[in-house]
Design a binder for these strands. Sequence first.
DNA 1: CGACGCTTTGACACAACTCAACAACCGTGG
DNA 2: CCACGGTTGTTGAGTTGTGTCAAAGCGTCG
Lengths: 235, 235
Amino acid sequence: MPFVNDHLARKLTTFVKLSPTELAGLAELQSTPVNVPRGSDLMNQGDAGQLAYILHAGWGCSYKVLRDGARQIITFPIPGDMIGLRSILLKTSDHAFSAITDVQVSRISTTRLNTLVDEFPRLATAIMWGTSRDEAITVEHLASIGRRTSLERTAHFFLELRDRLQLVGLTSDTEYECPLSQYVIADALGVSAIHVNRVLRQLRELELLTFQDHKVTIIDSAGLTELAGYDSIEG
Amino acid sequence: MPFVNDHLARKLTTFVKLSPTELAGLAELQSTPVNVPRGSDLMNQGDAGQLAYILHAGWGCSYKVLRDGARQIITFPIPGDMIGLRSILLKTSDHAFSAITDVQVSRISTTRLNTLVDEFPRLATAIMWGTSRDEAITVEHLASIGRRTSLERTAHFFLELRDRLQLVGLTSDTEYECPLSQYVIADALGVSAIHVNRVLRQLRELELLTFQDHKVTIIDSAGLTELAGYDSIEG
DNA sequence: CGACGCTTTGACACAACTCAACAACCGTGG
DNA sequence: CCACGGTTGTTGAGTTGTGTCAAAGCGTCG
């Protein structure tokens, strides 16, 4: 197996138990890793599609840019997440992916993916479960931006991120590394960077959560959950 | 074929040409239609999953409700669109669907869907293309709420709706039926109903678009497109 | 005919944005 | 080793977009 921590396998097996041969197939899909240096783009809006990736390590963001240059971040993929899967069937990619830290990915060969799911149909189901779950997160994000205040929205964001990281074993209950700048968080939450700063201060003063030195500390999980109206992600 | 207008087939064949037997299979999937009276819910948040539908006629909305009772509409499915497909693989449905007018749907049998895509793999590809396209629309909606002003957002909304209706032949270039109240539009755009009213007045005064008597009239398509920063949906 | 839902408008309040300035930090090159 | 520019974080003041509350007009349907 090419990776010590197969985050994708870890994620998918919370949904279905996979046989050793299925796991081997999944591992093989993740071969030939490539590094993407921080600050560079892996794919751009309008790129011809047919390319998808699996993220192994590092932080990045999927985003759209609007005509006036504003940016909306769709999601921060974490290890074990697929990137750009949607663009396989569309003519062009509808979004871009940018590496925030140095990032390690492997390209998914579409043909290999096809033969793999032919051979192991349960793997297809597991992968589609993963994409359904990602979609549900996007929809929750939509509801968050549309109908939550910036304070609720920010609380929700950090709770969801915690649960996603926990699913692949990258965090404890109360603390996790998060190398995002306030500008980047602003583009995800649909507010200005300055306002993110003010909201983070509020969360700190309410003794709910701190975000300092690229580290999130959840002080009062119950209080945050209540404030955000957060339901943990279900399978 | 059970329906004179197979909107789903019309939509999918813009992506791949389907053979007569494939079309027959698709038509059979849409048998046993049921009526959903306006105002009633077809599915609710938290329902046990494993049920999906195809919309044949009428208007409804997929939405989430937040803990405080606020509602965020995710999308207005139109004839030929699938409803609740995501919930097939998740334990519970992450969203609800409510009929705005009387609505005609047919339930998709999961087992029949499975045997069908086994028999006609190209059908699976076509359906997944459709879901990819729906996802792209949701992502665009997210960007719209996060980063466009309410004026741009409203313009974008009506242009996108026009293009979606056009794909299944339910509108001309400049005018379409749209039986949505301003309250409903507000819940889709993430603003208050009163503000929707103000924005619609602005669009009218700018001589870009009118929304009256459940009818949308696009006066200045180019102007609207420019204002909204709208890119037509691509396959 | 009355009740109800939807639209429209005005007045006011408040959340979030913009602009501006400064502090802290970091990697880089002299 | 330090000086430097660039990025990020922090805070204040004033502005603007949007929400809330209130009320009236209008259709439609029972």
